[in-house]
Simulated assay, not measured.
Amino acid sequence: MRHGKKVNHLSRTDSHRRAMLANMASSLILHKRITTTLAKAKALRVYVEPIITKSKDDTTHSRRTVFSYLQNKEVVSILFRDVAPKVANRPGGYTRILKMVNRLGDNASMALIELVDYNEIYTNGDAAAAEKKSTRRRGSKAKKADAPAAAGKAPKAEAAPAEEAVVVEETPIADVETAPVAETVEAPVAEAEEVAVAEEAPAAEEAAPEAPAAEGDDADEKKA
């Protein structure tokens, strides 16, 4: 029974397990990501992260200590030259484990383990999130700073009367256009009145001679 034993031996002897983890750590440093079983990925994370932390201190003693674990001069030089400066500002958590589809042969749980700072997709997302946060802060400060300026610029909103002036200038044009129409409408009315007066005058003249004829008739009647 393995009660209280937290180390996963991965069904290997101690020497075999260390050699396997050293090879996997070298492959991770060279290729920045590898695919393996989930149990091996978890064991590799515990093995390689202290080595990466040790590489931040670029001294002869640190290089010899890291070489004792990895047993590969090329990998050690890449670790101290490229990886260590890139993770210098990260206080641990240098690797990320992503679960994948189970293996077809034995249905084993598979995972991808990678160095966090070498994943451009996640790194760009973090940078974009940082930019959004910074813009929000700047936006709040900008609103406070622009509030007095907006108050000073408020009198400029009196540009509306300009439009009223344009409307007032247009009104005489409408009056000028309607004036001739009124004259043309009134002229025929005046002519009609003159024609009516002219027609009434002859009628009155025709009615006037009839009066003497009536008087003559009355005189004849008296003589008779």
Rank of each mutant, 00 (worst) to 15 (best):
P155H: 04
V195N: 13
I51W: 01
S140C: 03
D82M: 07
A159R: 06
T123K: 12
P212H: 07
H31P: 02
R12H: 03
L104H: 08
V189F: 10
N102C: 12
K32A: 05
R17H: 07
A151L: 12
P85F: 10
D175L: 14
G92Q: 08
I52A: 02
E169D: 11
A196N: 09
A198N: 11
T123L: 11
A182M: 13
K73F: 03
L28E: 04
E169H: 06
L44A: 00
E163K: 14
S140N: 05
L28F: 06
G93N: 12
A187H: 10
V87C: 00
A149F: 12
M24N: 01
T95N: 07
G4W: 00
R96L: 13
K32Q: 13
S27E: 04
K40S: 02
I97D: 04
A88W: 02
A208V: 14
K99C: 03
I97H: 06
P148G: 09
K156R: 10
T13E: 04
E120T: 13
A129K: 15
V76I: 06
K223W: 08
H31I: 02
A203W: 00
L112M: 15
E49N: 05
A142P: 00
A162L: 08
V75P: 03
E200R: 10
L98Q: 15
